[in-house]
């Protein structure tokens, strides 16, 4: 496969951007990728992030969202983040949340955490974490045909699970499946 930009060298950097179910692919050789600002030695995903960041300014402008200029906790400016792809502290996530929500949806296809939480967090988060663990054990129990255990686990999950929400809201932000 040759590079989409120069059309000469072999493409070794493959970017896939997925926005609202629309997937766009870009195949670049290393020199062109560098030129485009894809950081080769950076952690994976930063390339996608950078592509997202380039568009982010424009998207925010269009939607009339002006991100706060600096994080009150650590002083990092949104400009600093756009340049490096790195935030300054945990509070930055709150400070820049509107811009980040857009970006996270581009990078992860989701903007809400599902999974483990520290034991010391809120009872609700704790409950969600426990649910997650129970569901994993249930899956395992069903697989190994331990039906008695599965029944106990299912009861416990029933006690913890919040009442079902209207269809489509719980995972409304997910539009990409990694399967």
């Amino acid at each position: 496969m040759t590079c989409d930009l120069c059309g000469e060298r072999e493409a070794t950097v493959h970017l896939t951007e997925i926005i609202q179910d629309e997937s766009r692919e870009l195949h670049l050789c290393e020199p062109c990728a560098r030129e485009k600002g894809v950081k080769m030695d950076a952690p994976f995903g930063l390339a996608d992030l950078m592509t997202g960041l380039t568009d982010l300014g424009a998207t925010l402008e269009q939607s009339g969202i002006a991100p706060p200029t600096a994080c009150p906790q650590c002083g990092l400016r949104f400009e600093d983040f756009k340049r490096s792809g790195r935030l300054g502290c945990g509070t930055c996530y709150e400070t820049f949340q509107r811009g980040l929500a857009l970006l996270l949806r581009q990078v992860h296809g989701a903007s809400r955490h599902i999974g483990k939480a520290p034991a010391a967090t809120s009872p609700q988060a704790k409950r969600e974490a426990e649910l997650e663990g129970l569901k994993a054990r249930l899956k395992q129990a069903v697989k190994s045909e331990a039906f008695e255990e599965a029944a106990t686990l299912r009861d416990r999950i029933g006690q913890l699970e919040p009442p079902p929400k209207p269809k489509g809201t719980r995972r409304g932000t997910r539009h990409r499946s990694a399967q």
């Binding site: 790195r86 935030l87 945990g90 709150e94 990078v107 903007s111 999974g115």
Partner: peptide, 16 residues
């Protein structure tokens, strides 16, 4: 940690 965004990481590509 934030209940909405999970474990907060320096780069948003690792968050959650």
């Amino acid at each position: 940690f934030s209940p909405a965004w999970g474990y907060l990481t320096c780069c948003p590509t690792n968050v959650g």
